[in-house]
Simulated assay, not measured.
Amino acid sequence: MSASWPKGYGLKVLDVVDSTLDEAARMAPQLAGPVWILAKEQTAARGRRGRVWVQPNGNFAATLVMRMTERPDVAALRSFVAALALFDAVAEVTGRAQGLALKWPNDVLLNGGKLAGILLESAGTGQNPGHLSIGIGVNLAEAPGASEVEAGAVRPVSLLSETGTSISPEDFLPHLAAAYATRDLQFTTYGFAPIRAAWLDRAARLGETITAKTGAQITTGRFETVDTQGNLVLVTPEGRKAIAAAEVYF
């Protein structure tokens, strides 16, 4: 299960930190290049919309931080790059892609359960080009209990329980970093089109009826595609709707 570290990417490993995303923000002003930050323990981890992210011992928590050299809408498409890299890394360490799927906008599923989540944060003002942080959590060893996730959410699963594969965060990171570097090179060279096509090939519930919730607005329709801006496209009784941000329920 060896993987070589990608050229041009830095690495910082911490025993304990409040959050790898917070550490990324602190490091951002001095960045010379992209850096992976791995934490063995987080005391204030967070998920989407400020939710608490539960990290049992042995699970993976890391953030990739980089200078943002593109428009924010283009940089945001790296959530799809990261999702594909996670898919690739898990398939490599387990020796199989069977049971893996990608859930819009930023989850990786294994055997129908949530294995991993991705959270993007960006910052920048005035003449400061800003930075992009890609936070990634993977249930390598243990899945949070049902009481620790919101009602209606996809059940959490772990890599160990679903595949029997035991791997430490320190050993998993080189696989993910190498996979990300490969996918990111594809993105910067050829644009979003090949990333979008590869993501759709691995999309969960494509062609099926799903529900997207944004605040108080709920939209149910057939999952037709993800468009060239990364929006979820649903076919509803009122017509096609492109949704930029939402929580998706099956």
Rank of each mutant, 00 (worst) to 15 (best):
I243R: 07
A62N: 00
V138L: 10
Q30I: 02
P105N: 12
T225C: 13
N139F: 06
M66V: 11
L11V: 03
P129A: 04
Q127C: 11
W53P: 03
D107K: 06
F223I: 14
V81F: 08
Q217V: 15
Q217R: 09
A82M: 14
L77Y: 02
T211I: 08
E238K: 14
A198K: 08
D227T: 01
G33A: 14
V65Y: 08
L64R: 11
A83V: 05
S147D: 15
A61G: 08
G137Q: 00
V52H: 12
M27V: 03
A153T: 04
R183N: 11
T43E: 05
T188P: 13
Y180E: 01
N106F: 05
A3C: 00
G33D: 06
R155K: 14
G58L: 02
A82F: 08
S2F: 05
T225K: 02
K103I: 12
G58H: 03
V13E: 09
H175Q: 02
T188N: 09
K114V: 11
L11H: 10
A212Q: 03
Q229D: 03
A32N: 11
A216H: 13
T188R: 13
G50V: 10
L200F: 06
T69E: 12
A203C: 15
L119E: 01
A75I: 03
V54K: 06
A32F: 02
V81E: 00
N59C: 13
A75G: 10
I243A: 02
D107Y: 05
G124V: 02
L232P: 11
L38I: 00
T228I: 02
A216V: 04
K103N: 13
Y190L: 11
G117F: 08
P194E: 08
G207E: 10
P144G: 09
S147N: 13
H175G: 01
A178D: 01
G113H: 00
A179C: 03
S122C: 14
A151I: 14
R155V: 11
P29K: 04
A76Q: 06
G215E: 07
